[in-house]
Amino acid sequence: MLIELEDVTKRYGTDAVPIYALRQVNLRVDEGEFVVVLGPSGSGKTTLLNVIGALDTPTAGRVVVNGVDISRAGRAELFGFRRSSVAFIFQAFNIFPGLTAGENVQFGIDVAGNLDADPARVLEAVGLGGHLDRFPHELSGGEQQRVAIARALATGNPILLADEPTGELDFTTGVQILSLLKEQTGDGRAVLVVTHNREISRAADRVIELSSGRVASDGPPPGGPAELSDLHW
């Protein structure tokens, strides 16, 4: 088991006026799973991603990721955890504008110390073989997101956490990105995708639906995982 959450709660605000982003969430994610975390705005899905990725700490409960209990870990430990266990893909891509595509990928390699990886090969794997020396402003949105995925892959970390990865992209490009993410489960990675787009959840192996910070449902999509070519939004 790669990810385990046990009675995880995240509360903001004060005792007098508490705001619960997560309420007693229990879930498990194994290697090789493509999981979509679905929910409307304010449902807690991004908070869940941040807790799993150690960008945020739970108010209560236990979070064990890649064998590490990160619920009460110190700052330095959390930084180390992120270097070795997870890799993020953001809605706004967040690739470094001053670095080329190849150098962005190299960043992932340098951070994780995954010295076996080669930026050119990783970019090739995401369909950007000839874009090694391109800067982000020379790439389309879809290409930038591919670079972001390549950067995440270059870390070699077992868990990919993607927050609305297709949010800024058109339908066709979005499907391509989803396809790329789904492929990573073949290498034994767990991929968690956060989205509000129910259509995307149809392609998942498993859908965890959140509502007001609680897990409303957790299971395969109705009718099983759909083909990406069947998706429309």
Partner: peptide, 13 residues
Amino acid sequence: FRDHATMFAYGVP
């Protein structure tokens, strides 16, 4: 700020 946040998200000290 965003570049730094990304670096920290990737565990860069």
